[in-house]
Design a protein around this nucleic acid. Sequence first.
DNA 1: GTATAATTCAGACGTCCGACCTAACTGTAG
DNA 2: CTACAGTTAGGTCGGACGTCTGAATTATAC
Lengths: 193, 193
Amino acid sequence: MQNKVDMKSQSQKILLAAYKCISAKGYANVSLRDISIEAGVVLSQISYYYGNKEGLFKEVIKMLVQKYLQEVEECLQKGATAKEKISSLINHFQEMLSKRPEVFRLLYDFTSLAIWSPSFGELLRNLFKDLSSLIEKYVLRDAELKENLKAYAPNSLARMLFGAMFGTAIQVILDPEEKSLPAALSPILVMFE
Amino acid sequence: MQNKVDMKSQSQKILLAAYKCISAKGYANVSLRDISIEAGVVLSQISYYYGNKEGLFKEVIKMLVQKYLQEVEECLQKGATAKEKISSLINHFQEMLSKRPEVFRLLYDFTSLAIWSPSFGELLRNLFKDLSSLIEKYVLRDAELKENLKAYAPNSLARMLFGAMFGTAIQVILDPEEKSLPAALSPILVMFE
DNA sequence: GTATAATTCAGACGTCCGACCTAACTGTAG
DNA sequence: CTACAGTTAGGTCGGACGTCTGAATTATAC
């Protein structure tokens, strides 16, 4: 019979510990031993469930992607106009930045891995594609879109909008003391008014 | 007497080899041995000149920053209106992306280091501050600025503009096959027309 | 020329890591 | 109970890494 504290499966404990460790110290600075200790599990359990470090981190990413893509979609459904939708998305980003900055740290860490590793690269490419597709779907199909925005391919616009959030957020992460930085996301709205 | 091929000082050879290796494979995937071989220099020369791996990479960054901040400033001086200046900057980014993508790879690699290491963090924070200050100085002090842009703090606007380029560029780096992506930088111009 | 400092060189050291192996344990089906 | 697959445990292994040491060489100052 399993103890109540051990109700969570070993594999889940490992996954959560990996999330915690990596988002706190970075993929490169965390060893599988660190994670096994944090999870209260023996080292070899990690290879048993996830094969290797890369496989484990991929699962962490997949878990996160699944969780947050949905949140983003919900944001984009709020509001009637394009501006309101983007505004809701920006609010969500700002809230995440202040309340769950570790999610962003993980994202940026993941990004640098993706530059050098083809398999991570594909994972991140898909995430970026999905995110910009969501923006395209909910915002840029808006009939009320300003005339001068229509000169650009919707996909380019979506990529740029997402890029602006991504690029602004990293500045916040790097300089959390600079309280005025999150506000830098707001000027995006200019494009929709 | 030094051989002509060895005219470059050891420290310079190391610095250039480090740039080459790191921008090709990433900081975490390059060993000091790789660099010493690429430089045609003995391993211990690296510690002699740069102390340790971190010190060496910091010098690589400083070299790069010095080189490119100037380029950016020159871009921003071209053109009369805010839109023209930003357009010139975007062109420069697009050209860099296609001709010297390794500079961006280095920048993103550096960014992920900066998240976890305070000293790298300070270096990158300063770079971001300098870049956005340049944009602020040359573009956003423009008297012809659109009325609705004036609602935002110039610094916030500059941060967002730089963020948009940073965040769009990473998508290009990750998906170099997608030839339409660099065009995603262009919609930024909408804000200035 | 000699003394002194700076540089170059070859190699070793201890550490840490991911991967791997084998045995023990657990639950289950027959 | 037995057989067996699934799981957990503990430990080892080889290798790669950054750093360090000390000797050899070269340049510099007097």
